[in-house]
């Protein structure tokens, strides 16, 4: 052992970061799905959506959600950043490697880091817009009508992709489920989530048109 290693020896550090990465990831997926269920209240009707939004506002659930996202999202970013090759030479190696070996799961890892970075940027915009613009059927449909449709469609797809690949990775690494079954289950969940999200977006978009 070398002196610098002996002085900073913390055998559990890597394990703890791995746990933080997994737990924060799972919490974020849970958040994503809850979020999708909440916005899906528009499927019941405008009153349901507005009622839920009012309820959340009254009980400080919106600021709570933001604090949650900053903390858990921050922890997740802090943990996963170590996985992303930071040096240019390493980046070149992994992309070349993926192209070379024709292996789907290797590609999905690269996409995972790319979508992760994109989600970070888009989610910040999304949160800022929602916080300042407010959540209400009129505001939301207005936003989606005037330019945000594509933005939300992209964010929806990226988030769902990142979440399902992340979940897949966790289950594969810990060996809890058979891989093929996992592909299937996560595929169904993704299609459902994207389906719900797309329907919601469409409803808001047409509302915005009629308003």
């Amino acid at each position: 052992m070398k002196l610098q290693k002996a002085l900073s020896y913390s055998p559990r550090a890597d394990f703890i970061v791995e746990v933080i990465q997994m737990v924060s990831g799972l919490l974020l997926v849970l958040f994503l799905w809850t979020h999708m269920l909440f916005v899906a209240s528009i499927l019941i009707g405008s009153n349901a959506f507005n009622g839920l939004s009012l309820f959340m506002e009254k009980n400080y659930l919106l600021p709570a959600a933001i604090v949650f996202l900053v903390l858990v999202g921050g922890a997740h970013i802090g943990a996963v950043i170590r996985r992303i090759p930071s040096r240019w030479a390493e980046q070149k190696i992994v992309w070349k490697h993926a192209k070379l070996i024709h292996h789907a799961d290797t590609w999905s890892w690269l996409f995972q880091s790319v979508t992760g970075a994109a989600i970070l940027a888009l989610a910040i915009i999304h949160i800022a817009v929602v916080t300042y613009g407010g959540i209400d059927v009129i505001y939301s449909s207005g936003r989606i009508k005037h330019g945000f449709l594509v933005f939300y469609a992209v964010l929806l797809l990226l988030a769902e992709y990142h979440a399902s690949v992340g979940l897949y990775r966790i289950f594969v690494k810990w060996g809890w489920v058979k891989r093929h079954k996992l592909h299937w289950v996560l595929g169904v969940i993704s299609v459902l989530t994207v389906g719900i999200g797309a329907t919601v977006l469409w409803i808001f978009f047409t509302m915005g048109v009629h308003a």
Binding site: P11, A13, F15, I101, W109
Partner: peptide, 23 residues
Amino acid sequence: YFEVVGNEDGVFGCIGLMACDDN
């Protein structure tokens, strides 16, 4: 064992791509 493989150079360095298992 943990001191040997319970770290990033060992089992926690694996990011689960499973190219090893596939190949």
